[in-house]
């Protein structure tokens, strides 16, 4: 900040006067600080402090209190974490998320890239297709979940179309199918966003590579695999990591679509357990520890995915 005042009175260098007035103003301290203060306060209040507070809660025996009341919280070390790992529902929820990600992430990457590649040409109704793909992404989960439960409910349209092929019991109350249906739902809802990401990435793939492939006589599939797929690798990393983060934070879908993680916990998710244990059953310390575990896993998984997708050949 002291350098700012030192440079300010300097006279304009001959030949390039326009930069100085701008620079002098920009180096003035304070103005910028004033402008970002509300946002910085927001970040501290809504992100930094709650994150630290969550960590603190996870190491204490913590009780909900009424506003203004103070109940001392006892340090309990890793006791909450031990409870989390010993809980069978928590374990089940992590297995479920594993199933979810194994279906959701590859499906998202493949479908989004195929649709983006198909869209990447001069086509009639291109704007219509883009809008259609994006529509579920901008629409509330609650509204979409409502239609999906109508579609996939017992004796719903999907069952009617499939006839004898429909699973019994029906999708959402079937312990084998509940989690895959949630994975399909989330893939469908988020796909448009990832299609647009890939579409943007495809603009950076050099046309010369396609020309070269065409000269070499490569067919469409070959070109797609050897030019398009490697060309959008950075975007694939972003898509994978985003899909992992979104998927690991599943809440609304198991809460509403499968009626609170049913049948018999077949579709519970870690965040749903956080809500049930932490808020419904008033064990915030348990939920805080579960939150920390979830984040550590998500970060680890994202780093692995990143390494995996960024690996050159």
């Amino acid at each position: 900040m002291s350098t700012a005042t030192a440079t300010a009175p300097r006279s304009p260098a001959p030949g390039r006067p326009p930069a100085t007035a701008d620079r002098r103003r920009r180096f003035l301290p304070r103005v910028g600080h004033w402008f970002v203060t509300p946002y910085v306060v927001f970040l501290l209040v809504v992100f930094a402090y709650p994150l630290l507070y969550n960590l603190w809660i996870s190491f204490h025996r913590f009780y909900f209190t009424a506003p203004g009341a103070h109940v001392p919280s006892r340090w309990v070390g890793f006791a909450n974490y031990r409870d989390v790992f010993a809980d069978p529902v928590v374990r089940k929820s992590f297995v479920n998320i594993g199933i979810f990600l194994v279906i959701n992430v590859p499906l998202t990457v493949v479908l989004a890239l195929v649709l983006a590649a198909a869209l990447n040409a001069k086509l009639p109704f291109r704007g219509f297709f883009r809008a259609a793909f994006y529509l579920p992404y901008v629409t509330a989960s609650v509204a979409l979940v409502a239609v999906w439960s109508f579609l996939f409910g017992s004796d719903g349209l999907v069952d009617k179309v499939l006839g004898p092929l429909a699973p019994d019991p029906s999708w959402l109350v079937n312990s084998t199918w509940a989690m895959p249906v949630l994975a399909f739902f989330v893939t469908w809802k988020q796909l448009g966003f990832f299609v647009m990401l890939y579409l943007a990435a495809l603009q950076n793939v050099s046309g010369e590579l396609y020309d070269a492939a065409s000269v070499d006589g490569a067919d469409t599939l070959r070109t797609f695999l050897s030019v398009t797929v490697p060309g959008v690798r950075p975007a694939t990393t972003v898509v994978t990591v985003f899909a992992i983060i979104t998927g690991s934070n599943l809440f609304t879908e198991p809460y509403l679509l499968t009626g609170g993680g049913g049948p018999a916990d077949a579709s519970v998710s870690p965040v749903l357990v956080m809500y049930q244990k932490g808020i419904e059953q008033a064990h915030p310390d348990f939920a805080a520890a579960l939150g920390v575990v979830l984040v550590v896993l998500v970060v680890a998984l994202s780093l692995i995915a990143r390494r995996f997708t960024e690996k050159g050949d």
């Binding site: 992100f47 507070y53 690991s248 809500y275 984040v295």
Partner: peptide
């Protein structure tokens, strides 16, 4: 940062502490 991670501490702060 997934919002879900912030939900519990924010709930404690906003609903319980600040009323």
């Amino acid at each position: 940062v997934p919002f879900q991670l912030l939900v519990l501490p924010l709930y404690v702060l906003i609903v319980r502490d600040y009323g």
